[in-house]
Amino acid sequence: MMHDLVLRVVAKLLIPFILLFALYVQFHGDFGPGGGFQAGTIFAAGIIFYGLIFGVDHTRSVVPDCVVETMLAAGVLIYAGVGVAGLLLGGNYLDYFVLDHNPVHGQHRGIFWVEIGVFVTVAGVMLKIFYMFASRGRTEE
């Protein structure tokens, strides 16, 4: 599969758009369908696609393991951090109304950060799972 010209060309064409679409889904999630979970899975699927066609080693050099592992934990921390931020600013845990002077803007900001946290975790976990299975297969052969 590594030497299939059609696949490589098509993948090169498509992958930037898949990743861009993931980001669009992430940041446009307030107005259209979208959000952290969807964007995370689409992003991970795009990178897995890359990994399937160009090989896992290439993917590892693009998105190294340590980055993925950091993403794994960072997402949950961002999410929890939003909650703590609300707590520090005098509200309840995960209360977004206090994040800005205007409660509605505070909500927007809270949702934004929470979605980022979800995105980072989901993308990280999916990629990590893929890496784990892929590298297992390598050692067996």
Partner: peptide
Amino acid sequence: ILTAIVVGVATLALGLALAV
């Protein structure tokens, strides 16, 4: 269900890892 799908694939992967 949105959250359930993502959690579902994570647990599916966990089960597959156990199978491996």
